[in-house]
């Protein structure tokens, strides 16, 4: 039985993986498709207009929009920001109950049922990409019908954040293991990458030099957000010449 073997070995994780994401800002149109896809995939609640205006939206990925220049030569800049899955994540050591820790695959894991809601990680995160469940989640009809059964619905009082769609990663990894084959580059698609119309988001293994993500990451256009803080993000942005959006 293959499943038995899977459980006996307990973990399909091998440390030659470092999941990363490349986001090409030159391609991003700020359409927010990734935001919607993420909400749908990860059962992220919608908080409503008033709460969102008070800074309580719960998007795991959000589009930061900055205006550049003076009118009339004004430009909008879009930047999708999600959990940067830092190598040296400031949010991890501060949690008193190990609700967030670093996995072998370089992911910054968030364990919902360990979290007691100190919100320390949220204060420590310089990107402010962690969100808190202010109330019990409400999914107005008919959103209830589309809740993803592979992802838990979080209770009130705990932190959550982008997981790089860990449920999809595990599904593909375990499928490959059961089929006894090597994981192919591009096989794993987080919801945001899958739904991006211009294909600005590329997900892949940064340890694998031949993966598309690795190749893009070594582009001269690449940079990392707040790199100077030394957090070692796994999200790599590409930004080149002038784009008029």
């Amino acid at each position: 039985m293959k499943e038995e073997k899977l459980f006996a070995e307990n973990s399909p994780i091998s440390s030659n993986r470092r999941w990363g994401m490349v986001i090409d800002l030159d391609r991003c149109t700020g359409c927010q498709a990734c935001v919607v896809a993420c909400h749908a995939e990860n059962n992220v609640p919608v908080v409503g207009e008033a709460e969102a205006a008070y800074g309580r939206w719960m998007h795991w990925i959000h589009i930061e929009r900055y205006w550049e220049g003076e009118y009339p030569n004004i430009k909008a800049r879009f930047m999708p920001v999600l959990c940067q899955q830092c190598d040296e994540a400031p949010c991890e050591p501060v949690c008193p109950v190990f609700a967030t820790y670093h996995t072998d695959e370089g992911l910054n894991a968030q364990i919902y049922n360990r979290c007691i809601g100190t919100r320390y990680c949220g204060s420590a995160c310089p990107y402010k990409v962690r969100t808190f469940n202010w109330f019990d989640p409400e999914f107005p009809e008919p959103l209830k019908e589309q809740l993803n059964p592979n992802v838990t619905v979080r209770t009130r009082g705990i932190m959550e954040k982008c997981t790089f769609c860990i449920q999809r990663i595990r599904q593909v990894e375990e499928g490959a293991k059961m089929a006894d084959r090597v994981l192919e580059d591009g096989e794993i698609q987080p919801a945001c990458a899958q739904s991006c119309p211009p294909g600005a988001i590329v997900f892949g293994n940064l340890e694998d030099e031949d993966s598309l993500a690795s190749k893009l990451a070594s582009s001269r256009r690449s940079f990392r957000l707040l790199d100077e803080l030394g957090t070692g993000p796994a999200v790599i942005y590409l930004k080149g010449g002038e784009t008029n959006v």
């Binding site: 800074g55 919100r119 808190f132 109330f135 009130r156």
Partner: peptide, 15 residues
């Protein structure tokens, strides 16, 4: 009973 949302904190003012 209702959740922490009844307090005034938000993102980024988590404390």
């Amino acid at each position: 009973y209702w959740g922490f949302g009844v307090a005034g904190i938000n993102r980024p003012v988590y404390w």
